[in-house]
Design a protein around this nucleic acid. Structure first.
Lengths: 144, 144
DNA sequence: ATATCACATTAGATATAATCTAAATGTTTA
DNA sequence: TAAACATTTAGATTATATCTAATGTGATAT
C-alpha cells in the first residue's frame, strides 16, 4: 500500500492529507468489501483512535465529491463505500445486503433519444440475487 | 385505471385488498414518478385520510416482497418506489435525487464464471447524471 | 349469531443513519 | 504574527424506517 500515492491523490483533489482522511482512504483501498461509514470509523480508530463520527461522514462526503470514493445505496440499509480503483460493477445480496464487486465489462449506454436533455455521467450495473453465503447449499430437493 | 385488476393482482399474491393497500398500489400505478414512502402516504390520505405511516411502510414491504413493487435506494435520500409495470432502467439525478424511468433494453449478464456460486435474480442499469431540470440550460460559455 | 383465528391497522415509541451546530484546533497565507 | 481558511469534535438534531402492543376486520366454524 503506497502511502505516498494516497497522499498525492488527496492533494491532487485539493484535500489536505489529514490523519483521519488518510485513514479512511487507506482503509478503503485495502479493504474492498464495501464497508459502511460506521465500520470505517471503527477500523480507523482501531489503528489510531482519533476520529469521530462527524469527521468520518465529512471525509466520506468529500472523497465521494472528489471522485476518489464511490457510495453505494442499499435498500433498507446503511450506505456502503469503496475506493474507485479498478472499474467494476456491483452485486447486492437480496438477503444480507452485502455488496460485492463484479468483473467489469462494457454495458451499452442508453440511446441519446431516450436520454433526452439529461446529461449522462455514468452507467452502472447492479446485479441482484443471493451471495455465496446466502445461496442455498445444494440445488437439490430439501433445501430451504 | 382498472380497480379490479389491482384487486386481482393483490389477491393473486395472497394479500388482502384493503383500502390502504389498494391506495398504495393504485397511486403507484398512476404516478410513475417514483415517490417516497412519505409522499405515498400523503397522497393516499389526501383521497381518504385513513392510513398511517406504519401501515404504509408495512404495505410497501409486502408489495415489494410480492414482486408487485420495486424499491430504489438513492444515496443520502429516502428510498423511492414504483409499480413494476413495463420493464425499465433507472436514471438518478446527481443533484436532486429524482429517479426517472429509462426505456428498457437488454443488458448483457455477467459471465457465469464471474458470478461464481452466487444466484442471479436480476440485472438492472443505473444511469447517473443530471436530469432535465438540473442540467445547465445552455451548453455555452457562461454556464454555471 | 357468535366464537375464533389470521390478517391488518394504528399511534406512538424506538432504532438507525446521517447531518448540523458551535466551539476549538490546525494550517497556510499575507 | 495576524488573518483566513480548513478540519475536527462531541453532542444535538433531523430524517428515515421499524417495532410494540392494543385494536379492528373479515372469513370460517360451530
Amino acid at each position: 500500500m503506497d502511502a505516498e500515492a494516497i497522499k498525492r491523490s488527496l492533494e491532487d483533489s485539493g484535500l489536505r492529507c489529514t490523519p483521519q482522511r488518510y485513514g479512511v482512504m487507506a482503509f478503503l483501498m485495502k479493504h474492498t468489501g464495501h464497508p459502511t461509514a460506521v465500520e470505517i470509523l471503527e477500523a480507523v480508530n482501531r489503528l489510531d483512535p482519533r476520529s469521530s463520527r462527524a469527521t468520518t461522514y465529512n471525509n466520506l462526503r468529500d472523497l465521494v465529491h472528489a471522485g476518489l470514493v464511490r457510495e453505494v445505496a442499499v435498500e433498507g440499509r446503511a450506505a456502503r463505500f469503496d475506493a474507485k480503483g479498478m472499474r467494476h460493477h456491483h452485486f447486492i445480496c437480496d438477503r444480507c445486503g452485502k455488496v460485492e464487486d463484479m468483473e467489469w465489462y462494457n454495458v451499452p449506454r442508453p440511446a441519446s433519444g431516450s436520454l433526452g436533455k439529461r446529461i449522462l455521467r455514468e452507467c452502472e450495473l447492479i446485479v441482484r440475487g443471493l451471495c455465496t453465503k446466502c445461496a442455498p447449499r445444494h440445488t437439490s430437493s430439501r433445501g430451504h
